[in-house]
Deep mutational scan, measured.
Amino acid sequence: QCIKQELICKWIDPEQLSNPKKSCNKTFSTMHELVTHVSVEHVGGP
Results as ranks from 00 to 15, higher is better:
24 C>F: 00
34 L>G: 03
4 K>F: 03
15 E>T: 06
30 T>S: 06
41 E>F: 04
31 M>F: 04
5 Q>I: 00
31 M>C: 03
23 S>M: 14
21 K>S: 08
44 G>K: 08
28 F>C: 02
33 E>D: 12
17 L>D: 13
21 K>V: 09
2 C>H: 09
18 S>M: 05
21 K>R: 06
40 V>S: 11
45 G>N: 06
16 Q>C: 10
12 I>G: 06
44 G>C: 10
24 C>D: 03
35 V>R: 14
35 V>Y: 14
9 C>R: 01
30 T>M: 01
11 W>G: 09
15 E>M: 09
15 E>G: 08
11 W>N: 07
34 L>K: 07
36 T>N: 07
7 L>F: 05
28 F>A: 01
27 T>C: 08
9 C>A: 02
16 Q>H: 10
22 K>T: 10
24 C>E: 04
37 H>G: 03
25 N>I: 04
39 S>A: 13
13 D>H: 07
37 H>E: 03
21 K>A: 10
29 S>H: 12
19 N>A: 08
6 E>F: 00
32 H>E: 12
10 K>Y: 13
25 N>T: 12
39 S>R: 12
37 H>M: 02
46 P>N: 09
11 W>I: 07
27 T>H: 04
12 I>A: 05
3 I>S: 03
15 E>P: 04
36 T>W: 09
43 V>C: 13
23 S>W: 10
33 E>A: 05
3 I>H: 03
17 L>M: 12
19 N>T: 13
20 P>M: 10
42 H>Y: 00
37 H>N: 02
29 S>W: 05
1 Q>V: 05
25 N>L: 12
8 I>H: 11
8 I>K: 15
2 C>V: 15
17 L>W: 03
17 L>H: 02
7 L>G: 04
18 S>D: 09
42 H>E: 00
6 E>S: 11
37 H>Y: 00
14 P>W: 04
39 S>D: 15
44 G>N: 10
14 P>R: 07
41 E>M: 05
35 V>P: 01
43 V>D: 14
13 D>I: 03
5 Q>T: 07
25 N>Q: 13
22 K>P: 09
12 I>Q: 08
6 E>Q: 07
5 Q>P: 11
44 G>F: 05
19 N>F: 08
28 F>K: 04
12 I>H: 13
41 E>Q: 12
23 S>C: 11
6 E>D: 00
22 K>Q: 08
36 T>E: 10
30 T>P: 00
38 V>M: 14
10 K>M: 07
9 C>P: 01
34 L>V: 03
14 P>K: 01
18 S>A: 05
11 W>F: 14
34 L>Q: 04
36 T>V: 05
6 E>L: 00
5 Q>S: 07
12 I>F: 08
28 F>P: 04
41 E>K: 06
6 E>M: 00
8 I>W: 06
9 C>D: 01
33 E>V: 01
7 L>M: 14
3 I>V: 06
42 H>S: 01
40 V>P: 02
29 S>V: 08
32 H>K: 10
39 S>W: 06
12 I>N: 04
33 E>F: 00
1 Q>C: 06
24 C>H: 02
43 V>G: 14
42 H>G: 02
41 E>C: 11
31 M>E: 15
20 P>A: 07
29 S>I: 05
7 L>Q: 15
3 I>Y: 08
24 C>T: 01
8 I>G: 11
13 D>S: 05
29 S>N: 07
12 I>D: 10
5 Q>A: 10
21 K>W: 09
24 C>S: 01
23 S>E: 11
46 P>F: 02
10 K>T: 15
22 K>L: 09
44 G>D: 13
11 W>L: 09
44 G>M: 05
35 V>I: 11
39 S>C: 10
28 F>S: 01
31 M>Y: 06
14 P>Q: 04
8 I>R: 14
8 I>L: 10
1 Q>M: 09
28 F>T: 03
12 I>S: 10
14 P>N: 09
13 D>K: 02
23 S>R: 15
29 S>R: 14
35 V>G: 13
38 V>A: 08
31 M>I: 15
35 V>T: 14
6 E>V: 01
6 E>P: 10
11 W>Y: 11
18 S>E: 04
19 N>L: 08
37 H>Q: 00
24 C>Y: 00
14 P>A: 06
39 S>L: 05
46 P>A: 03
14 P>Y: 04
24 C>M: 00
35 V>A: 10
41 E>Y: 07
43 V>R: 14
18 S>F: 08
44 G>Q: 06
7 L>A: 12
9 C>G: 02
17 L>K: 10
10 K>P: 04
24 C>K: 00
15 E>F: 07
4 K>D: 14
38 V>Q: 15
12 I>Y: 08
32 H>T: 11
45 G>H: 04
13 D>M: 03
4 K>T: 06
31 M>P: 09
16 Q>K: 05
40 V>K: 09
14 P>E: 07
